[in-house]
Computed example of a mutant assay.
Amino acid sequence: MSNIGLIIEEKAADIGNFLVGRLLPFREKRAVGPFVFIDHMGPSELKDYQNLDVPPHPHIGLSTLTYLLEGSIFHRDSIGSAIEIQPGAVNWMTAGKGVVHSERTPEHLRHSDKRLHGFQIWVGLPKHLEQSEPTFHHIEANEIPIWEEDGVQYKLIAGEAFGKKSPVPVHSQLFFIEIKTKEAKKISIGKDLYGEAAMYVLDGTVSTEGNSYGSKQLMIAKDTKLCEFDMSENGTVYLFGGEPLEEERFIFWNFVNSDKELIEQAKVNWNDQNHHAFPLVPGDEKEYVPLPKAILNRKI
């Protein structure tokens, strides 16, 4: 009996200069543990005249996790944060009742050729934190736990697993793990995981129960405790999951919540540019991403 419950191939989503591999949500699987949205961003080659420019846009009811493999993004938000995120570091922003942020190519790279590659992730908040005050944390790459066992490198980007804990201040039981191999290895880690689990193959191949899976595939485990697989040489996979949230989470545009009415109110507040609900972003006040007119009157 195969432990692979569902195989999801990346679907391309065009967001301007970038082709993003959309991993979650899908009709077949709306969330894995508390993870409700995952974008694989790039890898993209940008010329000296091409830059990432995502103007200020809003969120409620979630935490965002940005993790880069290559390149750099400058983050600004309505809390007052202004910081450049580089490969291996983690930006963790908790929207709570409402936050606004922008993501742009840093000024010192805007006239140079560059690459951009990474993950943008949304994690649903426990119900009692959905209306909390927004917060922001930046964790440097050298603060993230990295260790090696039997020639396999592990990195605990966020959450708890393997008896270790990442300094990223998550709000529920979850894990986001990077596993790298130089030589072909058998990985057996089911005893170290919990809740639901999914695996994304970035480089190399993964084999389990006579089947091989390559890159651009998201695999959902039927039973997290049976998480065992073979990785090829020079392989990289990401495991994410944890304990599911008790209530269903609704996603509408950039808003996530267990209460549809709070999402409806957020739509109105952003469309009306209510700066009490969604403050301006210091240093990036001149433009914003408008609420698409097509969804203003569309109910969830």
Rank of each mutant, 00 (worst) to 15 (best):
F37T: 01
G98P: 09
V152A: 11
A184S: 14
L156P: 05
F18S: 11
N269R: 15
I295N: 08
I38H: 09
L291P: 03
Q217N: 14
T181W: 01
S81K: 05
I85T: 14
N142E: 14
L296P: 09
N3E: 04
E143G: 07
K293N: 07
E130H: 03
E247D: 15
S258V: 08
I15C: 05
I121A: 05
T181V: 03
W147R: 09
A13F: 13
G195Y: 00
Q273F: 11
E160L: 07
L46Y: 00
D284L: 01
K165A: 12
S72N: 09
R249D: 08
E10P: 10
K127A: 15
H117L: 13
R298A: 06
E285Q: 14
R298T: 02
G5M: 01
K180T: 13
Y154D: 02
E84G: 06
N257L: 01
D284N: 13
G204S: 10
F250D: 02
K180W: 03
K180P: 00
E70Y: 11
A277G: 10
K216C: 12
V99C: 13
M231P: 03
K267A: 01
E233F: 05
D150F: 11
P134W: 01
E143W: 04
D230E: 07
P55H: 14
K299S: 14
K185W: 06
N297F: 01
H128N: 15
L68E: 00
Y49F: 13
E233T: 10
P87E: 02
D272Y: 15
D203R: 12
L245I: 06
S2W: 07
F250N: 08
K182A: 10
Y238E: 02
K260H: 08
R110D: 15
F250K: 10
S232V: 01
T181K: 04
Y67I: 07
P43R: 13
K260A: 13
N271D: 15
I144T: 00
G42V: 00
E107G: 13
D223N: 13
E248K: 13
I79P: 00
Q50T: 05
Q153S: 14
E130F: 12
P106Y: 07
E45D: 13
V237Y: 11
K225F: 00
T105K: 03
P58I: 05
P290H: 08
S2D: 12
T94S: 11
S2M: 03
K11F: 09
K164G: 10
Y67R: 04
A266G: 08
E9Q: 13
E233R: 01
E287S: 15
R76E: 04
Q50W: 09
D39K: 08
K127Y: 06
E233S: 13
P43K: 13
L68T: 03
A158I: 04
A13S: 06
F26C: 12
P169F: 06
S112G: 03
N91A: 10
S102E: 06
E9V: 10
M219P: 04
G16A: 11
Y238L: 14
V20M: 10
D113N: 15
Y154N: 01
P87M: 09
H275R: 15
T105N: 04
G283S: 06
K225V: 00
D192K: 12
M1L: 10
Q131H: 12
Q50E: 15
I179H: 02
F229R: 04
K11S: 11
A13D: 14
D48S: 15
L23P: 05
I139K: 08
K155L: 12
R22I: 01
V123C: 05
K267I: 04
